[in-house]
Design a protein around this nucleic acid. Structure first.
Lengths: 193, 193
DNA sequence: GTCTATATCTTGATAGAC
DNA sequence: GTCTATCAAGATATAGAC
């Protein structure tokens, strides 16, 4: 209308930078990737990139937040209950086998961000706490419906499932012939009544 | 005798370098650690360090091989059968909770080494293949003795257990209040007949 | 066996032109 | 919004003295 659609001028460039940065961080981690390298792969110089994202850490956080939005973690996750959420995790693993870049990104970064000095440390602490809580709730709901094998503690099962998914990603990245979803499905299947 | 015991002159320095390098790689990963930093922490200059280990990649591989020897992977592992090997893994997890440096080293490096261009890539591909094979054999022996719950495939169970251990390490590094051994024990316990 | 000194490259970030 | 030019700091590695 009377205004300027100038707000998202350069939105295309921003998106290109974020896509490229995701791929680069995935391949070599945050520490192993240079701002110059990302900029070059975008057809930019590095000052041009730093115009859009003032620091390298800002760029990393933008990549992570963008993926959170795209994945719709808040949306598609909060709505799922009980076994449906567990099924969703298996489906996600199957989906991830088709996008090695995303798997590499999280596998590499979650290990790197273990260091309290890493710019994404707080992000991953929160991420895991939230994920465990969601999965624990799902297990508790399954148990309430009588669908869980006796003797299984929801909180423990949640930690195990999240850990299993992470560990399988590393094995899969080292040897892509392994089927992540199959192993997860077998694990969850063995826990249901 | 008639010779020179000069062979292990400087062996003390080598050992000091390897210990320090392990700690440094554990804290910041391979890519995030500089040779200068390791040398300084040893009270050396970096050319002095590079006299003992010609390149940074050589140093990393020496650290890994030294730990393989110290841990006696070949020795203590090849001798264990069936449930005893699985118990040993639980015991190792309990032990690891007392040496975060080692956990950090392997968690960080195994993710980093996912990149085929990483100097330790081949090492970790082999390491995981061997570990899975040993654990699968242990599950098969347990099954043969009638100790495994029906419907559990040894090879799948091995991949799951190795993955669980890896994933729990990341969660533990992000939140050391979590008990790794407990979660592993619960998992294995649920698989035995 | 360890040093000083240095070569060479790459890094993240800034200044200022266009 | 993107550039050139530049900075200061860090990296790996080598040469050669002691």
């Amino acid at each position: 209308m009377s205004g300027h659609e100038l707000t998202d001028r350069g939105a295309g460039t921003r998106a290109l930078i974020l896509d490229t940065a995701l791929a680069a961080f995935a391949e070599s981690g945050y520490r192993g990737t240079s701002v110059r390298d990302i900029a070059t792969r975008c057809g930019l110089t590095h000052p041009a990139l730093l115009y859009h994202f003032p620091t390298k850490a800002d760029l990393l956080m933008a990549v992570l937040r963008r993926r959170d939005d795209a994945e719709g973690r808040a949306a598609g996750f909060a709505d799922l209950r009980g076994a449906a959420l567990l099924d969703h995790l298996v489906a996600t693993a199957r989906l991830n086998a088709g996008r090695p870049g995303v798997v590499e990104l999280y596998a590499t970064l979650s290990a790197e961000a273990t260091d309290p000095g890493h710019p994404a440390h707080a992000y991953f602490v929160d991420r895991y706490a939230n994920l465990r809580a969601s999965v624990a709730r799902a297990y508790a709901e399954v148990a309430h419906d009588g669908g869980l094998r006796p003797g299984i503690d929801p909180a423990t099962a949640a930690r195990q499932l999240v850990a299993l998914m992470d560990g399988l990603q590393i094995q899969w990245l080292l040897d892509p012939s392994l089927d992540m979803a199959e192993a997860i499905e077998a694990h969850v299947g063995a826990q249901l009544a």
